[in-house]
Write a protein that binds this DNA or RNA. Sequence first.
DNA 1: CCTATATTTCAATAATCGTTGAAATATTGA
DNA 2: TCAATATTTCAACGATTATTGAAATATAGG
Lengths: 98, 98
Amino acid sequence: MDIDLAVRQLAALAQQTRLAIFKSLVVAGADGIGAGELASRALIAPNALSFHAKELRHAGLIRSDIRGRSVIYFAELDTMRALVAYLLENCCVGFDVQ
Amino acid sequence: MDIDLAVRQLAALAQQTRLAIFKSLVVAGADGIGAGELASRALIAPNALSFHAKELRHAGLIRSDIRGRSVIYFAELDTMRALVAYLLENCCVGFDVQ
DNA sequence: CCTATATTTCAATAATCGTTGAAATATTGA
DNA sequence: TCAATATTTCAACGATTATTGAAATATAGG
């Protein structure tokens, strides 16, 4: 993990709507959530959802599968865990979780 | 930790210069680093350092002490740890560190 | 007190980001 | 095939952010 990648991923999460979307996807787990459902949960228009999802996808934090005429999004937990590991190693100094 | 605070802190870290500054301050620990030294390390003008430091300070991620005509900055590790704890609890799902 | 040093504030500009509406693309089912 | 549904793309706009230079503030030391 280099600092550029960390910055891009932090930037993707550093926005109300996107962090909320990502949290929803984490909770949803392997089921994922469809684009329409995500948009209505976030109270944003479908095209706005598409915009924010693209940001998260470009940062590697989510992925999408097309099913019929729907798109289902999933959190990429490994990416998120790598980011948190980076923060723990570089920015926390002896922070013992739990 | 509410989502608004998390977003503000993530945004403060989601920028090359500021993440680098913060990492330097974490490494420096209790000694802190002066504003001039931070600016030259980051290859930015003093006023730019002042701008970015203010962003970090408003997010609660650093603090500053005035010593004579110098200003020394310190990482606020507790804030950072709280942010990482939030991410671990809400966005990582059973990520066991180490 | 005056000058040099250290940092911040202010203003201007360019760049990036977020939102909105309209149009385009693709898939489903009648 | 046609209409309806689901999502993305595109363009425009306003808002926020980052950078730069100039001026202001404050302290230290001669």
